[in-house]
Design a protein around this nucleic acid. Structure first.
Length: 419
RNA sequence: GUGGGCGUGGCCAAGCUAGGUUUAAGGCGCCAGGUUGUGGCCCUGGAGAUCGAGGGUUCAAAUCCCUCCGCUCACCCCA
């Protein structure tokens, strides 16, 4: 028998309220901040991600779903959300729009990884990007948006971690210091970190090995090696966050796994529980547009994992919104009544009422049991007797009371009853 | 890529240590009946499993051995 591929999941009807809930609130928050929705293709040229995300990142090196299509083009299932948005910004000449351009998206993300709690090969992100303005007030706006999303969702006890990793001016010198610090202690490094020392020294800082954590503690801090412009940007951002009463924590060892980040990086973490630590991550990417062969254009944004948000909503007991509920089951006895019941159910739907037909050919008792299991407030019962008199039995399921109403008045009666 | 745990009807699961008494318990759910037209509780009945797959040991394997597959948790990485 076929199963859903490893690391993917069906979202069953009973799960949908959570998805609707998160989408609804995310959409509303995005709207209140003036963000417009952008949908991009589920696959892109592989090169977009190799150039944008970075050749030596795990995402590109070992997690991308890439393939050659029948025409010989090299494409990849989208492994992250920002590069496609930037591609679309460039492709559609959005620099001619008022800056910054504010965009949001919901999309599936694909990474070939060993699945575990809160981690999938196909997951979904809500993301926002503000492109075309380098001012730290935009950083604050993005972080505020993320923070407001979480609080509007009803999630509690979250932590906001922020850091600045500098820019092209100050990072090279910082990385040299970092390398020197670790090179002097190379014999104590874990094997992964020995590789990082050469290839991606920034990542030395967030190694989880105990010995490496210790070294990271004494390592030079990004925050203390910023050039004047980055320092000014950083301090203004923190000032704005304080003004917004957003409780941040500066985390000197916070770096991000994608190459394109510069200056501001941040994450939002749920309270400690087993499983994945961050439900939202983002930062500034002022160099990305140039990597994609566009004009220098600053940008900042974040991605938030839908599955992880929903996982935490469940852990915290936040109830999702009710969907438009079913109002009635239409019960019918006999061929003639069935024919009329089909029309009656249709009339109810035309009146905006959720209604389903009880399974045909079953006893009244069985159909009522069905109505009971559907958890509807009313059952409309139509048999030969009612049909001949032009009425329908209108039964209140919770009170176990019923009365007759003229067939043609059924939609109105049900509407009134549901108010 | 590395390591731990687990695989018995749609779901939860007993049985496996000491192989035969299992035609593989029980519960939920599903269908029917108990009321020839009245649900929820209760009662009765029914459908539904080649015990993850393949091989081996044995007179006999869900139970023991081997191989493979899958799920899951953690590392790594990230949302």
């Amino acid at each position: 028998m076929y199963r859903a591929p490893r690391g993917t999941a069906d979202v069953l009807p009973e799960e949908q309220p959570y998805w609707r809930y998160v989408e609804g609130i995310a959409r509303d928050v995005a709207r209140r901040f003036g963000y417009g929705r952008l949908d991009t293709p589920v696959f892109e040229s592989s090169g977009l991600f190799v150039r944008g995300v970075g050749q030596v990142t795990d995402i590109v090196e070992k997690e991308m779903y890439t393939f050659e299509d029948r025409g010989g083009d090299h494409v990849a299932l989208r492994p992250e959300g920002t590069a496609p948005v930037c591609r679309a910004y460039l492709e559609h000449g959005m620099r001619n729009l008022p800056q910054p351009v504010r965009l949001f998206y919901f999309c599936p993300i694909f990474r070939y990884d060993r699945p575990q709690a809160g981690r999938y090969r196909q997951h979904h992100q809500f993301g926002v990007e503000a492109i075309g303005d380098a001012d730290p007030s935009v950083d604050a706006e993005i972080i505020e948006l993320a923070w407001r999303l979480m609080s509007d969702l009803g999630l509690k006890d979250l932590s906001l971690l922020v850091n600045s990793i500098g820019d092209a001016n100050c990072r090279p010198a910082y990385l040299e210091q970092l390398r020197a610090h670790y090179a002097a202690r190379i014999e104590y490094l874990c094997n992964d970190c020995k590789l990082r020392l050469e290839r991606n020294p920034l990542r030395l800082l967030d190694c989880k090995q105990p010995a490496c954590i210790e070294m990271a503690h004494e390592a030079p801090r990004t925050e203390e090696h910023l050039c004047p412009d980055c320092r000014n940007h950083w301090e203004r951002l923190l000032g704005y966050l304080r003004g917004l009463d957003i409780p941040y924590r500066v985390e000197p060892r916070l770096v991000r796994g994608l190459d394109y980040y510069s200056r501001t990086v941040f994450e939002i973490q749920p309270p400690e529980e087993g499983g994945q630590t961050n439900i939202c991550g983002g930062g500034r990417y002022d160099g990305l547009m140039e990597q994609l062969e566009g004009p220098p254009t600053p940008g900042i944004g974040f991605g938030a994992g839908m599955e992880r948000i929903i996982l935490n909503l469940k852990r915290q007991g936040v109830p999702p919104v009710e969907e438009a509920p079913l109002r009635a089951v239409v019960i019918h006895l006999g061929e003639a009544a069935t024919e009329r019941a089909v029309a009656l159910a249709s009339d109810l739907r035309s009146a905006g009422l959720g209604a389903v037909l009880a399974p045909a050919g079953r006893s009244l008792r069985a159909q009522l049991r069905y109505a009971n299991s559907m958890n509807v407030p009313y059952a409309l019962i139509l048999g030969d007797d009612e049909l001949s008199r032009g009425v329908v039995v209108f039964r209140d399921m919770s009170r176990a009371e019923q009365r007759e109403v003229p067939l043609e008045n059924a939609p109105t009666a049900l509407t009134d009853a549901c108010e």
